[in-house]
């Protein structure tokens, strides 16, 4: 479906009843886990593990406590996992198992509109999950300012989006959902552990540190942390923001191209 590169927003909007129906099926479970999982993480990693970490002392990039250090990193990491959950298996279902995308392309909708609607839904899901995560953290007294949190919220969404497009593209390329298990083990878990959510990337060996800083998650973690803890440094913040935006956009374009190729055959 060659032609326009930009989605037509009226066509994107026409898909709201589909995504609303999809969300109605799952929102109860997802909202529940969006509260529970963050709470468990914050309690276990932040409060309980934090006691031991804080007792030993040491540099945590200026964070007043381990809880304050780890909490913003956990939100950003959560964004990555949500992005994965909302693109990989759902995209496979829509290209292969239920072929929903094929039905959509038989209507006036074009691939660009379909990808736009899907990724906007992912952004919505990210806003809900990360918003709830930030709410759960509020009573623990780790936020330096309210405006910082309000700015951190869209940054966590952007962090998720920097994965969403690329993962969507990946999902419409592969034939088999076992690829997602491999992706989870080889990408999501290592990034989750090594992107500075749990400890400063400065403590990684040079090669691993370099790798961690190429991956989008570290940029999201660092920017979220700076905003939440209230010591924003303009230079790195602009680099983080630009990098996340560039990846989100590139991923989006790639997702359109890959889905176009996928539905062609």
């Amino acid at each position: 479906m060659a032609g326009s590169v930009l989605p037509r927003w009226d066509m994107v909007l026409r898909q709201r009843s589909y995504w609303a129906a999809a969300y109605r099926r799952t929102w109860r479970g997802s909202v529940f886990s969006s509260f529970l999982v963050p709470l468990l993480y914050v309690l276990a990693m932040g409060v309980l593990l934090g006691r031991y970490v804080d007792a030993r002392g040491g540099s945590l990039e200026g964070a007043p406590s381990y809880l304050a250090f780890v909490a913003p990193g956990l939100v950003a990491a959560q964004a990555m996992q949500t992005a994965m959950g909302e693109t990989t298996w759902p995209v496979m279902a829509m290209t292969k198992w239920q072929r929903t995308y094929y039905a959509m392309t038989a209507s006036p909708l074009a691939v660009v509109d379909i990808v736009a609607a899907h990724l906007l839904f992912v952004a919505f899901r990210l806003a809900v999950t990360c918003g709830l995560f930030l709410l759960v953290m509020a009573p623990f007294g780790v936020f330096a300012s309210w405006w910082g949190v309000l700015l951190a919220w869209p940054v966590t969404v952007l962090t998720g989006m920097s994965f969403a497009g690329l993962l969507h593209a990946f999902a419409s390329t592969v034939e088999d959902s076992t690829s997602f298990t491999i992706l989870f083990r080889l990408m999501v878990v290592p990034l989750f552990l090594l992107s500075g959510a749990f400890f400063p990337v400065a403590s990684l060996p040079a090669a691993l540190r370099w790798l961690a800083q190429v991956a989008p998650l570290w940029h999201g973690v660092d920017l979220t942390r700076m905003l939440v803890l209230g010591h924003l440094r303009a230079g790195p913040a602009v680099v983080h923001l630009a990098y996340l935006l560039a990846l989100s956009l590139a991923g989006w374009l790639l997702a359109v191209r890959r889905l176009d190729a996928r539905l062609e055959v």
Binding site: R14, S17, Y18, A21, R99, Y102, S107
Partner: peptide
């Protein structure tokens, strides 16, 4: 009407028609 069914298994019969209708505005 494609060769392989592309219906949405998780919607009911009538919703399938309503959602599809929305794609046509």
């Amino acid at each position: 009407c494609p060769q392989e069914d592309t219906l949405d298994n998780e919607l009911d019969v009538r919703q399938n028609l309503l959602v599809y209708g929305s794609y046509f505005g």
